[in-house]
């Protein structure tokens, strides 16, 4: 077992973990933050996307021990003081989700995308989300959701 300390959604946790435990299992099963989902084991689907030190990563392709000392944000930590993040709001407003399973990862990847490109084109949004699969929406309304968020984050309505 190895002792790790991570900050998740602003709260520090110190836990003993087996070195082989994947970060996504640590988040879900040890910390009980089950909003982050698992959709594959080949690092393709992106359902497990979280932010590590501010950047989107696939938490199924990291060991928990690798995250020692880092600061993580999961879907549960995105809204602040009960106010939805503009990306969350965009997904709701634009019907950017159906079954909702890819949604936490899709939202976290979109947050990351908008951090690096505040005003992406449709093409940039589509390529920016190449690491996230959705089987329900055909991506149409996901693109619209990200556009909504981009506009809102730049001070539009």
């Amino acid at each position: 077992m190895a002792e790790i300390t991570v900050t998740v959604n602003g709260k520090s946790y110190t836990r003993d973990v087996e070195p082989r435990m994947l970060l996504v299992h640590f988040i879900r099963d040890v910390l009980g933050l089950t909003g982050t989902n698992i959709g594959c084991e080949t690092s393709v689907c992106g359902a497990c996307t979280i932010l590590m030190d501010g950047q989107a990563i696939k938490s199924c392709t990291q060991l928990a021990v690798q995250a020692d000392g880092s600061s993580l944000t999961t879907i549960e930590g995105l809204a602040s003081n009960g106010d939805l993040h503009p990306v969350q709001e965009g997904f709701w407003e634009k019907h950017g989700l159906q079954c909702g399973y890819c949604t936490p990862g899709m939202i976290m990847a979109s947050v990351d995308l908008l951090q690096s490109n505040a005003n992406p084109t449709e093409d940039e949004i589509r390529h920016g989300l190449e690491g996230n699969l959705c089987r329900c929406t055909g991506y149409h309304n996901i693109v619209k959701a990200v556009q909504y968020a981009a506009e809102k984050m730049q001070g539009g309505n």
Partner: peptide, 21 residues
């Protein structure tokens, strides 16, 4: 109208099967 089920889904509060302990 916007979906009633979405608030729990966009905040990670929905409970899928694997979330049940």
């Amino acid at each position: 109208i916007k979906r009633k089920e979405d608030p729990r889904l966009i905040t990670g509060q929905a409970k899928y099967l694997d979330d049940i302990q």
